[in-house]
Computed example of a mutant assay.
Amino acid sequence: MLSRLTARPFSLWLLAFAGLLALGTVFFSLTLWLTVPVIAGQGCVSGGLCGPMAPLLGLWLQPALLIAAACTGALAFWRRGMAVGSRIWALMPLALLLPNLPSLFVLGNLWGADLGAAFLFFPRWSLFELTPLLGLGVLLCFEVEYMPGFGGSIARTRLYGSIPIGLIYVLSCVWICSDLVLSLSPHLGIPIATVQSVRDVLHFPLSLAGGKVFAGLPPYGDRPDMVVPLGTLVNLMLFAVLVFALAFDGSGRLRRAGALIFVNKDNGDDGKPLFQTSGRINR
């Protein structure tokens, strides 16, 4: 039976998740550089086995690291979600990583060989889209369940007691994680062209090229300096408002306190007060 994770042990799990993800993507060349000599041993002397072993090892080591990162993240968010009132956060690392494992190969850049280019189906615009996952992970490293604005779960968090910022934030997470559903489309009999059209709408990009911001990709086939999905940008802005509501808005604390002091008075009291002047409780 899985137990709940408090903030401190979750931070260690998150560090392990981020480490596996980094080793399998942007630092994968360094991972191979360190791993191949250890396995080959003396075979690396005078150009032995190291050269042929690197591509072969990369074929199974990189997917193993990325799948291990996804599983570690899902388990960590599940157990931390038990403490903050929502196990469904375990879907977030799965939705952002599993449908896009081939595209993450590009970030590894296996010594100049793009092994994932032939397998791209739903490629990420950039590593920037993973920042909502890491941002939520950093938030859960703090004792969210004891913050003034926490109302029992993140989804029930309200700004100034009326604006459902928690629910809006959760919906934005569903928006950026929609690839988990879209990636199942070939098994559901939905044409790929239709799914691609839906994905283009859901993940509409904002690009930066030559110091200008474009709605969509730059014209005339120019290469953008940076591409940010609109859903991710909206999610990060809502995340900032959510953090403000959790940290500085006391409406969640008031709702929790109200549930504790509520007294259900039945008709058998005959209008008598609960406490007498002497301090005795009426029976």
Rank of each mutant, 00 (worst) to 15 (best):
N109L: 14
L91M: 13
T25V: 01
V38H: 06
F119Q: 11
T31F: 11
T31W: 04
E143I: 05
V38A: 15
L91V: 05
L140W: 11
W125D: 11
G116A: 04
L91I: 03
P52G: 05
T72N: 12
I67F: 14
W125N: 10
L139H: 00
F105G: 03
S103I: 00
V138Y: 02
M92F: 15
A68Q: 07
E129P: 02
P102N: 04
G137Q: 12
G112Y: 13
S126Y: 05
I88S: 14
G151A: 13
A113H: 10
F28H: 13
G51K: 03
G47I: 03
V144T: 05
L139Y: 12
M82W: 12
T72L: 10
Y146C: 06
G112V: 12
P102L: 02
G43C: 02
D114V: 03
E143N: 10
G108M: 01
W89T: 03
F119W: 09
A113D: 14
A155Q: 09
F105N: 02
V84P: 14
G81V: 04
F150Q: 04
L134I: 12
C71V: 15
G112C: 08
A76T: 06
D114T: 02
W33P: 00
A69G: 06
A40S: 15
L91D: 00
L139P: 10
L34V: 11
L30Q: 15
G73F: 08
L30N: 15
W111C: 01
W89H: 07
W60C: 15
G43N: 13
T157I: 08
G58Q: 01
T35E: 04
A68W: 03
L32M: 09
A68I: 06
W125G: 10
V36I: 15
I88L: 04
L75N: 11
A83G: 15
L127D: 04
L140T: 01
F121V: 14
T157L: 04
G135W: 14
R87S: 02
L66D: 05
L139T: 02
W60I: 09
G43P: 11
P99F: 09
L97C: 14
F121H: 12
E143S: 15
P123T: 03
W125L: 06
F28D: 04
I39T: 13
T25L: 08
E145V: 07
L110F: 08
A118R: 13
L61K: 15
T25F: 02
L56I: 07
A117L: 14
F142R: 14
S103A: 13
L136W: 10
A68G: 11
F105T: 05
F119N: 06
E129K: 11
G112T: 13
F77G: 02
S86R: 13
F121P: 00
S29E: 14
A83K: 13
F119I: 01
A40R: 01
A68M: 09
P93H: 09
L133P: 11
W111T: 11
C44D: 01
L101Y: 06
V106P: 00
P132V: 10
L94T: 09
F128Q: 10
L97V: 13
W89F: 14
A74H: 09
N100Q: 13
Q42M: 07
A69K: 06
